[in-house]
Amino acid sequence: MSKVVAHNIARFFLLILLQVLVLNKISFYGFLNPYVYILFILLLPFETPGWLLLTLSFGLGLSVDLFTGTMGLHAAAAVFLGFVKPGVIRLVGEKPEYDLTTQPTMSEMGFKWFIAYAATMTFIHHLVLNFIDVFNFREFWQTIIRVIISSVFTLLFILVIQYIFTSHKEKR
């Protein structure tokens, strides 16, 4: 259990650093900005209590906001993502009842489950984030296209990270 907590704390900081120091500096074609930090919310254990889930989401979003100078933007999107997480899990498929230690990772839940889960979550997050950022519906389709392309990028990054960590585990 403490190992899981330690893992999550480490992931929290590493993902923020990755997001702020690397990914925010890269702009693909000027507007594509993958937001990989949401992987932290994705990988929080199934048993995380609701209040903790939301608090951690808020803290994560706010931390990213502090670095990007967009106070509240990422916090709002991240809190929303934390809020929909239980629903998405119910939609995609619950974890097996008997296994208490199972994490919502690719290695433990399977590629198919994980990609459906991650894709849904990423899309929801990017949708909320982009519409708050743009703040009007005049450029609706333009925004939607941006959401979809960004989501694909983010998802690719998430899968790559998951793959790296999974293979690492297996090697050990």
Binding site: F58, G61, P86
Partner: peptide
């Protein structure tokens, strides 16, 4: 509580925003 905390954090974010 889940819903209420969500509303709390979300409105806090919006205020900041």
């Amino acid at each position: 509580n889940f819903m209420l905390i969500f509303i709390l954090f979300e409105s806090l974010s919006v205020v900041l925003l």
